[in-house]
């Protein structure tokens, strides 16, 4: 009757094997390819050199910039929205926002581009409306296809994503803390400054990192919206896959891919350091 217990690590083998095959091996292939000279098959740094200069360097610049902006601003706005929803007494509203966040956070690509072309494109609804009251957005330099235009579009899935991921963390804020602070004479601003926000900080940071990753790897929306006018790294990588490749540069796409991995990895390391600081009280 006595059953021999399997060693504990056996249970994670299928999971680990799958991850290794479908994530580990492809990534290694990309990394190795980044250092291969397609002509000779020998090892070279040329791909990395090209990937970190000129138009590709600018691509990294805009990608990182756009991702930072659309992690921080929608992160803050999503936090405010989530707090407002939490404070609301309406259960129906809470349910509506929770489900809507799930849907909108996964919304992207051409459909999303369409929504905003119809709204903020050069003949979009809002552009026409404000023109009717005498403000010419495009005349004033605004363009949906610019950095800031794309940032506004990204907010459409980034804000719901923030609401989705930060809401569970908000449940960790105990009502007693607010009441105790009130009781001790703190104004709402003082409560948020000394207690509410510091308590939320670790979670907010983690969520913003997720938002950065989501924006950094966003491909479909930008590709549909700008058709290449705004140089972003994922678009550039995609163009290598679509076969628009100069001879001898076949592996630059792989080098760009390695660059993206490095950027996110560095950011995660920074995050881990920062996390240690803001969550000192947790340990």
């Amino acid at each position: 009757m006595r059953q021999r217990e399997l060693p504990a690590w056996v249970g994670v083998v299928p999971f680990a094997a799958y991850t290794l095959v479908f994530l580990g091996v492809p990534v290694v292939a990309v990394v190795l390819g980044a250092f291969v000279d397609p002509a000779t098959g020998g090892v070279t740094m040329a791909n990395v050199g090209i990937a970190t200069s000129g138009v590709y360097l600018r691509g990294f610049g805009s990608s990182i910039g756009l991702s930072l902006v659309t992690a921080l601003v929608p992160g803050v706005l999503g936090l405010v929205l989530a707090l407002a929803v939490r404070a609301s007494p309406s259960l129906r509203l809470k349910r509506a926002v929770a489900t809507a966040s799930g849907v909108f956070a996964n919304f992207g690509g051409v459909p999303l581009a369409f929504l905003f072309v119809a709204t903020l494109g050069s003949t979009g609804l809002v552009v026409e409306l404000v023109k009717a009251v005498g403000v010419d957005l495009y005349g004033a330099g605004f363009s949906l296809y610019s950095f800031w235009g794309v940032a506004i579009v990204y907010g459409y899935f980034q804000i719901p994503l923030m609401v989705l991921v930060i809401t569970p963390a908000l449940d960790g804020l105990r009502p007693h803390w607010r009441e105790a602070a009130d009781n001790l004479g703190a104004t709402p601003v003082q409560y948020w400054r000394h207690v509410g926000l510091p308590v939320l900080a670790p979670a907010v940071l983690g969520c913003m990192l997720l938002l950065f990753g989501s924006a950094f790897s966003a491909y479909a929306t930008t590709s549909a919206l700008t058709s290449g006018s705004l140089a972003l790294t994922p678009i550039q990588i995609g163009s290598f896959l679509n076969g628009n490749v100069l001879s001898g540069q076949e592996n630059v796409g792989r080098a760009l891919g390695v660059g993206m991995i490095v950027v996110v990895a560095v950011l995660m390391a920074l995050y881990a350091l920062l996390q240690r600081r803001v969550s000192r009280w947790l340990r």
């Binding site: 105990r174 007693h176 803390w177 105790a180 009781n183 001790l184 004479g185 703190a186 207690v195």
Partner: peptide
């Protein structure tokens, strides 16, 4: 509440 000048101790977990 904040101007009532009262100290309060809750059941539990009220420390910041």
């Amino acid at each position: 509440v904040r101007q009532r000048d009262m100290g309060m101790v809750f059941q539990s977990y009220s420390l910041f």
